[in-house]
């Protein structure tokens, strides 16, 4: 197990500060785990792949977006400045600016590409949060505590993918029908795709993947060599967004 940026910062921060016991215990147990992990069972790491070819089959299909946004009480604001989105589409050239050439841009540049939070392996959004309101869970899901977030928006500046939205106003009036099984948010907090952690807890897959008739969204355990996701990543060429930043996205694109 490699020492992540987070571990390093946390340990050095501790050394400097001699912070109270809770964190020390947590960091130390993480450390000893690192040394014995060879014998331990591999943890889960949830991941996802978007099959762009399949996604394009049905023109203008937005089923996954609707499924996610209605499941998670995501408000619909008309003005772009204040919109909140967990999963959405952008032109290919904005999502993969470096994968463009002058000759492919005409055709590929404007093709719609799905994007959401990448649930990074070493998420910069977690590093910067001053109150531990957003963190990577042991299963790879990067989650947010809406009740702890102070709305400083440091994580929005830190996320290199533009995955996070902020509640500039009270979201509730802009939710068409509230799903009582998922919390609504207040103004002043950040939110984003949560890999359907609430459905994972019940043994279900994400709402977007379930809703897609083309099976263009494949969800699974990246640590499990024979998972459907891993098989797909073996058989088809896939890329991540901005892998050069070292964030380790768990979302793959089959191009």
């Amino acid at each position: 197990m490699k020492i992540t940026r987070k571990d390093f910062l946390r340990l050095s921060g501790l050394g400097l500060l001699a912070l109270a016991g809770r964190k020390a215990v947590r960091a130390l147990s993480g450390w000893s785990f690192a040394q014995t992990s060879a014998s331990a069972a591999k943890p889960i790491r949830w991941g996802m792949a978007f099959d762009l070819g399949k996604c394009r089959h049905k023109d203008g299909c937005n089923r996954c977006i609707q499924a996610c946004h209605s499941t998670h009480n995501v408000p619909q604001f008309a003005d772009r400045a204040h919109e909140i989105k967990w999963i959405w589409k952008e032109p290919f050239q904005n999502v993969f600016p470096a994968a463009q050439t002058d000759y492919t841009r005409d055709f590929y540049g404007s093709l719609p590409v799905l994007l959401a939070c990448n649930h990074c392996d070493d998420p910069p959004c977690q590093d910067v949060c001053p109150v531990d309101a957003t963190w990577r869970r042991d299963d790879g899901v990067v989650t947010i505590d809406f009740h702890r977030c102070i709305g400083c928006r440091y994580c929005m500046a830190a996320c290199p993918y533009g995955s996070r939205s902020f509640n500039w106003q009270d979201p509730r009036p802009a939710i068409a029908t509230v799903n009582p099984d998922f919390p609504t948010r207040t103004k002043g907090v950040v939110e984003k795709c949560n890999f359907c952690e609430e459905r994972l807890a019940k043994g279900q897959g994400p709402a977007c993947a379930e809703s897609c008739e083309e099976k263009a969204i494949v969800f699974g355990d990246l640590e499990q060599p024979d998972s459907e996701l891993r098989q797909l990543l073996r058989s088809r060429f896939a890329v991540q967004r901005k892998p050069e930043l070292g964030t380790g996205p768990s979302v793959y694109y089959i191009v």
Partner: peptide, 15 residues
Amino acid sequence: RIFNIVLHPQPQSVM
């Protein structure tokens, strides 16, 4: 919620 900064200090955050 500003006191969360004191209640949940995060040495890995530059803030």
